[in-house]
């Protein structure tokens, strides 16, 4: 089940990145941002799913949703951190 959940969450994060890319067109470097958001989504989705008790399609949908939201929130916090002059690490 874990690989499916990770994949669903990855897709959720990647969708968030794809929506964020203006004009919905891929340019150089944007594929990597989709992959990064997907990975963030996968981590957030897996973390969320470890706190709930779900199986089947509901679990995959919830993981995708958590991946989407996780990527969104992490990206927002990251941007706020950059604006305040903080480092990335």
């Amino acid at each position: 089940m874990l690989p499916s959940i990770l994949l669903a969450a990855f897709i959720g994060g990647a969708i968030r990145a794809a929506i964020g890319i203006r004009k919905y067109s891929l340019k150089k470097g944007q594929v990597s941002s989709i992959a990064i958001d997907g990975m963030i989504g996968a981590v957030c989705g897996a973390a969320f799913m470890s706190t709930v008790n779900m199986t089947g399609n509901a679990a995959l949908l919830a993981a995708g949703l958590a991946g989407y939201v996780g990527a969104d929130v992490v990206e927002t916090l990251y941007k706020l951190r950059i604006k305040r002059g903080g480092s990335l690490v």
Binding site: F48, V52, M54, A58, L61, A62, L65, V69
Partner: peptide, 16 residues
């Protein structure tokens, strides 16, 4: 309602 009647799902859906 559609995924699971869990408040946590409602919170993240409300966020996203």
């Amino acid at each position: 309602i559609l995924i699971a009647e869990d408040p946590k799902v409602a919170v993240i859906a409300g966020l996203g």
